[in-house]
């Protein structure tokens, strides 16, 4: 079949055709290599093999931990992430627009904000625990602190780098400041804002796991701690694999959303 397809091609076309095939196969090969390496490493040691890890996943469905299967724990983590992101995407973007658009506000807030974002989210945990205990809110707050900077920084950069010519077009049509902000500056900064949304999503997913490892009753981070405490390494590895897969899926979803909301960036992201 493929010989029929390539028969009429010139040699360089045929080369390009096979190269394209290769690009499709290579990702699969890399996953298979990882599994092979993992299996080999686990053969003569206590390290759990991929099969054991898979079995641990099935077992978790049969005997849930704290009444939750892996799906329940993943949803618990995702809920915290999206609560935090909902806040970040509203207030973070609004604050980014404020300091990106208004020079006075930028001068007023930038030094404080730069100091704030230099402090790692984990450093806040003692204070947050002291103030708010260990419920759901402090976890969401930790995630907010850990992922808001990406949104603010990108939004601010987008707003302060609006090309002068677009604003001049507004001036010429006699647009007022509000029209310039909402019809020129914000739309032209949307791809930068979306870069912030993407980065904040992956940051939030990382921070939530860290937050859950410090005193939670649910979530994928909690599963890792539980696995560590009970020397249940298959559980730890299974959780890590789930974290990786969900993280990758989040990246795909945000990229898809960007293409949907900013169709004009499609060419560039391709």
């Amino acid at each position: 079949m493929s010989r029929v397809k390539t028969a009429a091609m010139s040699s360089s076309e045929r080369k390009a055709y096979y190269l394209n095939r290769l690009y499709m196969i290579l990702p699969v090969i890399s996953v298979l290599l990882l599994l092979l390496l993992w299996t080999t490493a686990s053969l003569n040691s206590d390290f759990p093999s991929p099969v054991e890890t898979w079995n641990r996943l099935i077992e978790l469905f049969e005997r849930p931990i704290k009444n939750k299967t892996i799906i329940g724990h993943t949803l618990a983590s995702l809920t915290r992430v999206f609560l935090a992101l909902a806040f970040n995407w509203t207030f973070g973007i609004a604050f980014g627009i404020l300091i990106g658009w208004n020079k006075k506000c930028r001068a007023l807030f930038t030094p404080l904000f730069n100091a704030f974002r230099a402090v790692p989210p984990l450093a806040w945990i003692p204070l947050i625990t002291m103030w708010f205990g260990i419920g759901e809110f402090p976890k969401a707050l930790t995630v907010i602190i850990g992922s808001i900077a990406a949104v603010v920084v990108n939004t601010q950069a987008g707003l302060s780098n609006v090309q002068q010519i677009y604003l001049d077009v507004g001036t010429m049509f006699n647009a007022n400041v509000r029209q310039k902000l909402f019809q020129i500056a914000i739309p032209s900064a949307l791809d930068a804002i979306f870069a912030g949304v993407r980065t904040s999503t992956s940051a939030a997913w990382m921070v939530v796991l860290a937050a859950e490892m410090l005193g939670a009753k649910s979530g994928v981070g909690f599963l890792i701690t539980r696995g560590m405490d009970s020397m249940d390494m298959p559980l730890v590895l299974m959780s890590m694999a789930v974290i990786g897969i969900v993280g990758a899926m989040l990246a795909v979803v945000t990229q898809f959303a960007e293409r949907l909301i900013c169709p004009w960036t499609r060419k560039r992201s391709n």
Binding site: I165, Y166, V169, M172, Q183, I184, S188
Partner: peptide, 28 residues
């Protein structure tokens, strides 16, 4: 009513052709 055609490309990249043509009229 002043209109200006700039030397550099100044069509708004985030608007379609039709939306670009409507832009100034909607501002007004």
């Amino acid at each position: 009513n002043l209109a200006f055609v700039f030397q550099e490309p100044s069509a708004m990249p985030w608007l379609t052709v039709e939306q670009n043509l409507r832009f100034g009229l909607e501002i007004k």
